[in-house]
Design a binder for these strands. Structure first.
Lengths: 225, 225
DNA sequence: TATCTATTCAACTAATTAGTTGAATAGTAG
DNA sequence: CTACTATTCAACTAATTAGTTGAATAGATA
């Protein structure tokens, strides 16, 4: 095999992964699955696609070996087959944030919103967290909380905010997080809580950022010994 | 704007980046530009595409804001507009390596080749490098070496290996590197050197992996103080 | 000035893709 | 066994895409 053929074939291999993220709906599916395994039904509701189209995109992900499934009762539950998909999504989002004006604009307009809707970064939260003057709430669907959540967080899904609101103290700051920097749930929760008189703040991070930080800490610890 | 419209638009934004890596030739262009800025002419030769098609793909990269260009004489020189493209390519390659069998197979067959063609990782090299019992050579085109190279490396482009071979000592180990884990140049150099009686070894890393390591070291240093 | 070289552009073709529709399958519950 | 639910599959359409060809442009050189 000549070098050109080798290059063509190896880049064709890379492209099998690249093609996956060339469709908005497939990126959204991977984003959702990165929070927790989900049935086709759930993915259909979350993405607002037809069942057939959702199934077809999931099979494209299967072919690229990025997801796998198991059957339970008459449901099919899909999950990520490789955790590094999270890094791929992160790389795409970071570049889009820096290079695509629309992305920045949309985020500012719908997630960050206004200055009186306070946002804290992961680092800021980590510095404050030991003071015990706040309560951290996870406003994602409960199955995502059950799959993984930030240590010490309370599960209060956004649809159940009103029912569980009695769990929240008025005298402490309420810090809400959801799927990450492009998820509207935490913004919505903070806005609704503030209207009700709570001190509420949005944490701009999800479980992946938190886990990443946690590993970095552990690595440092190991290296320092 | 309702939440669904917001999601559709934000994922459409991400997809502008994702679409770029859905074509093997565009991944190859980004890969080449990640080594050094290049003229259209050079990219045409490296990718074996027609000039018109190369130009068209470069304009697709321009539209996604991933490259920029400057004109010099009657040449147009393209370069990456965002260094994080390297992270994106790395994420894709890592996943492809783990999930796509063809990629692993091709790499073993054409890069790693046989057991008597010794390969060392970046970590192994970093541990050995202070012993002064070897010489490190960069076998990429000279313009890429000039743009950035591993500290202490000698530039011996693969096409000029025979001419410059007198620079290499027979009594020291020769360690060759090129663009990274999927580049054939270093393998070719090591094979040719071994035939001529040199002790030659392939370093499985490029400037990006080296730079990444260098930053991590610096960060640790800063954090430890 | 005319000529050469590097690059871009416009028009076209063949192939691929996302999405729809409706039928088929497979497992569950009555 | 029947009815129901979740999922997949096949056939089709409209839109997009990669690549080609040949002409156009723009800067450099003679």
């Amino acid at each position: 095999m000549d070098p050109r053929t080798f290059k063509d074939q190896i880049y064709a291999g890379f492209t099998q992964i690249g093609k996956v993220v060339s469709s908005p709906k497939r990126i959204e599916l991977l984003d959702l699955l990165s929070q927790s395994p989900k049935t086709v039904e759930t993915l259909v509701k979350e993405t607002a696609m037809s069942t057939a189209n959702t199934s077809k995109h999931l099979h494209a992900l299967l072919e690229a070996q990025l997801v796998r499934y198991e059957k339970e009762k008459n449901y099919v539950i899909y999950q990520l087959a490789n955790e590094k998909v999270v890094d791929l999504l992160f790389a795409i989002k970071t570049i889009a944030e820096e290079q695509i004006e629309d992305v920045t604009r949309l985020r500012d307009e719908f997630i960050v919103r206004s200055d009186d809707l306070e946002t804290i970064t992961l680092e800021e939260w980590l510095n404050r967290r030991d003071t015990n003057e706040h309560v951290l709430i996870d406003v994602r669907p409960q199955e995502e909380y059950v799959n993984e959540h930030i240590d010490g967080a309370l599960s209060i899904p956004i649809e159940a905010l009103n029912e569980h609101i009695s769990l929240l103290p008025m005298d402490k700051e309420v810090i809400a997080y959801c799927r990450g920097a492009y998820c509207v749930y935490a913004t919505e929760a903070v806005e609704r809580l503030k209207v009700l008189g709570y001190q509420a703040v949005r944490l701009e991070a999800g479980v992946h950022e938190w886990r990443e930080h946690y590993h970095k800490q552990t690595d440092d610890f190991v290296r320092k010994r």
